[in-house]
Design a protein around this nucleic acid. Structure first.
Lengths: 140, 140
DNA sequence: AGAAATTTGTCCGTATGTATC
DNA sequence: AGATACATACGGACAAATTTC
């Protein structure tokens, strides 16, 4: 189903959607917008179209994009050290078992465990961080 | 040589090639794939095309990529949780935010967080330990 | 401990071919 | 035919995480 642009052009519909999110706080000031590739998936639009939408927002002064970094919702003056909560789900890593984990898994303290971390978000804020620990693959 | 994609797109040809290497063991499980720059040289394709190929493998669950590290051949299906075993809540307590949690919640290191811990059991053995962290009071 | 090199992540700009309205 | 959108591909640049020296 490509290219039904009866009323408005696609890029304008997308730009309006994003503008709404910024104005109602779904994307708080200073926060990073989803990346172009994420928006591409979400809107099922090509990168060129996404870029056209973001360019419209930029021209309207609603966002600022930094080369190599991303696009921010109406940036704030310098001095606000607000760490942009990493959109990166740190995924999986190895950690050493603390005493409690070691007891639960019945292994020695320091044994390598796999930690999977995920983040529960709501309205751009991190609501909860979930960490799941497992023994390393028994099948290898 | 820009953009002759008559038959298959290049990124898919490259993805298929890499998938074959993984499936026939040329790239064993857990091993690092060649770096993007190496693949760029090998396939004489641009980095974007290489990344597109790797993204296809990632979406297929064949590889996992870590920032600054590299791309691994299926080290462990990360997102797939069978969730057959029920979780037993084993406790709730307050902990101080470590640097990573502090960054995620946008609070200072040491801020009190609530930690809920539960375990997933199967035939008496602990399969996984789940720790959920939340802010003690609503931040707004 | 700190600097440099590696490697992936993201963005920019551009170009070409294809398909649809 | 023209405008819009999509898919693919290239090259260059800065950012950030990791590793190495």
């Amino acid at each position: 189903m490509p290219t039904p642009h009866y009323g408005q052009p696609r890029y304008r519909v997308i730009a309006d959607d994003l503008r709404r999110r910024i104005e109602n706080g779904a994307i708080p000031p200073g926060a990073l917008l989803p990346t172009e590739s994420v928006l591409t998936a979400e809107f099922r639009a090509s990168r060129g179209t996404i870029r056209q939408a973001i360019a419209a927002l930029r021209e309207a002064g609603l966002v600022v994009t930094e080369h190599g970094r991303g696009t921010y919702a109406r940036p704030r003056p310098p001095g606000s050290r607000e760490t942009t909560a990493p959109l990166l789900t740190t995924g999986q890593r190895e950690v050493a078992a603390d005493p409690e984990l070691a007891a639960l898994f019945a292994v020695e303290v320091g044994t390598a465990l796999v930690e999977l971390q995920s983040i529960e978000q709501s309205r751009g804020a991190v609501e909860a961080v979930v960490r799941i620990y497992r023994l390393r693959s028994p099948s290898q």
